[in-house]
């Protein structure tokens, strides 16, 4: 495992994303292909990211730790802090690009692609967890509780944890 390449992948993921989880599909593919991370590492760091305070995008700091310890989390922090600085450039050129159709279209195309690839990453993640009647039921339950009841995330994950322990 090469820290330089790891950092480059983290940075690339962040540069080509438009929000907190946008870097997931790229990292998921690249790190799994290199056997630097497992499906479980991804699923666990996503969960940890939901539980801790701060922007959702901090999930990648957990991933960095699971892949490469303290150094990995530091690289991840750096990789998510640098790209948003480009907003200062946008601020400078605001008047030139504001409302330009090509810019709007670029952003929308990128967002759609992020979501499309994200869905496939979720599919892989779920297969990594194991497709069983139990896991399918918990998935359906979390979708239901998450959309209908608007439960706090931590509570929802707590219920899921207890379900996992009790229901063997």
């Amino acid at each position: 495992m090469n820290s330089g390449i790891f950092f480059w992948l983290l940075l690339k993921g962040s540069l080509l994303s438009t929000g907190g989880f946008g870097n997931l599909p790229l990292l998921h593919q690249e790190l799994l292909d290199r056997h630097w991370a497992t499906e479980r590492d991804f699923a666990e760091s996503l969960t940890l990211g939901q539980v801790t305070p701060g922007p959702n995008g901090l999930w990648v700091i957990s991933l960095g730790y699971l892949v490469d310890g303290w150094r990995g989390s530091l690289l991840a922090l750096l990789a998510i802090t640098l790209p948003p600085l480009l907003v200062l450039l946008l601020y400078r050129f605001y008047r030139c690009i504001q409302g330009h159709a090509a810019v709007d279209g670029f952003m929308r195309g990128l967002s759609l692609a992020v979501i499309g690839t994200f869905l496939i990453a979720m599919l892989h993640l779920f297969r990594g967890v194991g497709v069983t009647p139990q896991s399918l039921l918990i998935l359906a339950g979390s979708l239901l509780l998450g959309s209908v009841r608007r439960l706090p995330v931590i509570l929802l994950l707590g219920v899921a944890a207890v379900t996992g322990i009790v229901w063997k």
């Binding site: 699923a43 969960t47 359906a140 994950l157 944890a161």
Partner: peptide, 11 residues
């Protein structure tokens, strides 16, 4: 985790 991970995918 058997409970949490599917729920994370759901989220």
């Amino acid at each position: 985790l058997k409970g949490i991970l599917p729920a994370t995918v759901g989220l």
